[in-house]
């Protein structure tokens, strides 16, 4: 715009050509300068990866959901058959949905309650706190590894540590991983044991609560529970909200632990057949790419639904300190 006078720039709008050119060079809008070329150059790695490895695959998986495809022969359009089979003809699918919901609705709240309780325990200026913080976080840092899942399987095995301890106190052994009603609890226990990340996030949140609030409450003679109920909990709701969203999303996608502990089958009686595990079996052991794509899209919708519910409900229970 160097060759136009000030008057012109004030009265005339730039032509379309000029605006398109501006898209890729720089333009002045108000006081903010746009650097489109530089901006797009810098984000181009992500943008390329997003289109190639995220956007196109999502579209492809949506189309695949309406086909039957085993990679070797060409895909065959089957309309809604995959969804019909999933919802009406596949009992195993429903068992996997049940196992996943059971897991998410028990492991996530338990893990968050534990994380918050321990964070409050560590939110003091006592000696040794940083050591305990490291010790409590250690299981989480190796949490998703195969080694830890193998270890957990052997601890809960028939000859494992848990049964040995039961024997020491005179109780009969329990087939933890063989019994359909206890197997999933071994996985829930594993999830609760790894409360480290939400604990650290809660701890950061607790440190931000001004101590004046507690001092004022103490002068009023508030009991510990009342302080927790009326100060800690409301001020932590944004953190609880964040942790809840992240944990629910991750909870629906748990794979490695269930794969290792159940030997890749979801045994006993499909009680540990998590959604991601069943999807893996359909996609990569029987190569039903169409059916597993339909499953993946339903998983996407389930996660979107629950995240949506949490977001929608948040206006009723999440308190931001800026609010009145």
């Amino acid at each position: 715009m160097s060759n136009t006078t000030v008057d012109q720039t004030l009265t005339t709008k730039p032509s379309l050509g000029q605006r398109l050119k501006n898209l890729f060079t720089s333009k002045k809008s108000g006081v903010r300068r746009h650097h489109n070329l530089a901006g797009y150059l810098f984000i181009s790695p992500w943008l390329f990866g997003f289109i190639t490895f995220v956007l196109l695959p999502i579209v492809a998986s949506f189309v695949l959901a309406f086909t039957r495809y085993d990679i070797l022969s060409p895909p065959e359009w089957v309309g809604l058959q995959n969804f019909e089979r999933m919802f009406t003809g596949d009992a195993r699918y429903w068992r996997s949905v049940r196992a996943t919901f059971y897991y998410v609705f028990t492991a996530v709240p338990l893990r968050l309650v534990f994380a918050l309780a321990v964070a409050m325990l560590l939110n003091t200026a006592r000696r040794g706190v940083s050591l305990y913080r490291a010790v409590y976080y250690a299981p989480s840092i190796v949490g998703g590894s195969v080694a830890i899942a193998v270890m957990w399987r052997e601890i809960f095995g028939n000859e494992g540590v848990i049964n040995f301890l039961l024997y020491l106190i005179g109780l009969p052994p329990v087939s933890w991983l063989g019994n359909p009603s206890t197997a999933i609890w071994a996985l829930i226990a594993l999830a609760v044991w790894q409360f480290g990340s939400p604990m650290l996030i809660f701890l950061a949140g607790l440190k931000q609560i001004p101590t004046e609030y507690y001092e004022a409450a103490a002068i009023d003679g508030a009991a510990a529970w009342s302080k927790f109920r009326n100060i800690t909990l409301p001020l932590l709701t944004p953190i609880i909200f964040f942790n809840l969203v992240m944990q629910v999303i991750n909870g629906f996608m748990v794979f490695t632990q269930a794969f290792i502990i159940s030997g890749g089958t979801g045994r006993p009686l499909d009680t540990t057949l998590f959604y991601a595990l069943y999807l893996y079996i359909r996609a990569f052991t029987t190569f039903e790419m169409g059916y597993s794509s339909a499953m993946a899209w339903v998983l996407l919708l389930i996660i979107a639904l629950f995240t949506g519910i949490i977001f929608k409900s948040s206006s009723n229970w999440v308190f931001y300190s800026g609010d009145s």
Partner: peptide, 14 residues
């Protein structure tokens, strides 16, 4: 960030 990897991984594999 909230996208299940399963939605991407099947077409990627293909």
């Amino acid at each position: 960030l909230m996208l299940p990897i399963q939605v991407q991984i099947i077409p990627q594999y293909i």
